[in-house]
Design a protein around this nucleic acid. Structure first.
Lengths: 206, 206, 206, 206
DNA sequence: GATGAATGAGGGTTCATTCAT
DNA sequence: GATGAATGAACCCTCATTCAT
């Protein structure tokens, strides 16, 4: 059951294992040995394909960004009623974080290291141009239709939408402890989703 | 320049150095040698006063929580107009994160490790009971006075207020990169502060 | 409940704690902190009274030697029938090792370190002169009375008597394992005692 | 002078160096750095091959047990006159301890630690089954031929044979000191060998 | 493309001992 | 006689990376 002689699968198995390990333990806490073992690959292969632990981390991060942006594009927000579009985006973002906690941890690690990997990546930058355009379009249409108040910056809005979910989920352990509540109980999650939608939509009202 | 024979100062110098190093490098990335050196103390003293790296991390975290909650209490929110109180809290929270980036990184580390330190800390739990009471009171008064919509959960609201600032600031490196903007430029920071205030107050409107 | 101002008790408590710790963990494995804690004394006192860990070890060893030789002298072997005297000595030695396992461990440690403490101790040497004299006397009387064979060296005999018990008891863990028997079960201990007595008495027969 | 690329030699060099260091300094006193240096290997290799200092100790112990039992088997005791067989075993055991002092120290360490390594080792247990069988056979033949007294337990006898040499040699430093004799002078060693043979054979007589 | 063996720098922690009071 | 605070050397172990095959 060796994974010999299927370079693509070897590569992608390493990347998957790495994403998992980086997510669970952070960049510094991830272990090259563990990643190789989990991927069923020789440690040397990891260097063969990715060059270094840092490069592997960047590859994992790029891949994760690509995935969320891909899923986002499929929402088809441009052709919907502005309020509906915002609601969909809010719910999608919440659900995505909920379903992909590793993505948040990857972001956390990258920011702990002051974005030193992402800075070198052209791909990451390119992935995000469309997102801003789309949001700007929705906001404009909402303003014209008298639904939204004026002057809302699409970037600020996106960061708000993401932040409402990110902070709750990425910091769920400390928040659960300080507030004495299990914030990831099923009912709590549902309540949070409704809260965020209400917050954002109300905040945009004229 | 020995720092002999002033146990309190030695202890607090170690704690300060530790907070800094944990903030900059995360729990795993922090170095016991570096902390001791920065504190001008012998490495052994760190263990003498705190027992282990993990216990030192918890001490740093508890201290940080205590500081933000102390500052928060000084806002005297109970005796203010509900809208004013919320605005002050929002601005305070933003300013605090802005002025204490190490606090965010500490939280990030603790959550990466699934809250395993904070779980053992009674102190952290106790520090937060008053905060929720205060917020609940403000929301009630706002409802009674017809200013705020009903049914807003104080815990959810607090997480929103904090999340709006936390995500923007803690993830400033990746966000700056993906949106192609310097999010910590002075003007950008001012814009974000205004955005958050507007978001939260608008969201609470009846 | 401080043990202030009773120097003799402090000293002897330290010595007792040290003997225990050296016995349990060996010279290298013993811990100065643990000894002080167990003695309810400040660590500095240990150095005040004994000078160093090594000197403390020697003190413990000397004290232990003194105790076994004292108990031995009380057997009053000189005035007994030679066979009876040997039997008493064999049984005493066995019982003493059984009741004072820490003595064996102390000896083990000292020999691991090639006797470097005992070499400096005049006291230890002096403690043992009478023992050889006594044994020599018993053997001579036994020979004259036609009970024992000739030419048995008292030192060799003593080492045999001690060795029969020492090896069995000091190596009880490995021996129990390799022979698949619990050598310190009550019945096993009784059997060993009888075996040793029989061995030695039979070996001395004419 | 790199010792690259000969895994078997590397492994066995580490094991040999470890055996020496454990023997000389005990388990606690042995130093991983020293072992690696003496083996001409990188310290990391020690962990690569053996996992931990404790596992390395067990490996050394197992290997030492295997060696003495191997040499013992070569004595071919089953086909000899019972008295001759016992004599050969006694002399072999004495000579082996004399020639392999490290084996005694290893046993001493293991027992200081209450047999915690050997307990996990199936190999050690298995190595010793044949020995007891052989001794039992010799004793039975001796009884039938009217040479030996009845009721001697082979395990007890073996422990006596080993103990007579072990105690004398392992405790040679303290014993030499307390009796004021050099017990490892050539003549003393010869005398001890003769003493043990005489003791054991006389003790078995009918 | 793939492998097991090897490396050296440094990780957190513990130690016996001493200083200032 | 007694104490808490301080020291620096060293301990076992782990890491990302590279070499030889």
């Amino acid at each position: 059951m060796k994974n010999n002689r299927d370079p693509d699968r070897t590569r992608s198995r390493i990347l998957a294992a790495a994403t998992q390990d980086f997510a669970r333990h952070g960049l510094g806490g991830a272990r090259v040995d563990r990643i190789a073992a989990r991927a069923g690959a020789n440690k040397r292969m990891l260097y063969y394909y990715f060059g270094s632990k840092d490069d592997l981390f960047l590859a994992a991060l790029e891949e994760s960004y690509a995935q969320i942006r891909n899923a986002e594009r499929a929402l088809d927000l441009e052709h919907r009623d502005p309020r509906e579009a915002i609601k969909r985006l809010v719910e999608f973002t919440w659900d995505y974080y909920l379903g992909h906690p590793e993505f948040m941890t990857l972001l956390g690690s990258e920011n702990l290291h002051e974005g030193r990997h992402v800075r070198r990546s052209r791909r990451v930058r390119e992935l995000h141009t469309p997102l801003v355009q789309t949001l700007r379009g929705i906001l404009r249409r909402g303003e014209r239709e008298g639904l939204f108040r004026k002057g809302v910056d699409p970037v600020q809005l996106y960061i708000s939408i993401a932040g409402e979910g990110y902070f709750y989920l990425s910091n769920r352990y400390t928040l659960s402890r300080i507030f004495g509540r299990d914030l990831v109980a099923r009912r709590a999650l549902g309540a949070r989703a409704r809260h965020i939608v209400a917050m954002v939509l109300n905040a945009l009202r004229r």
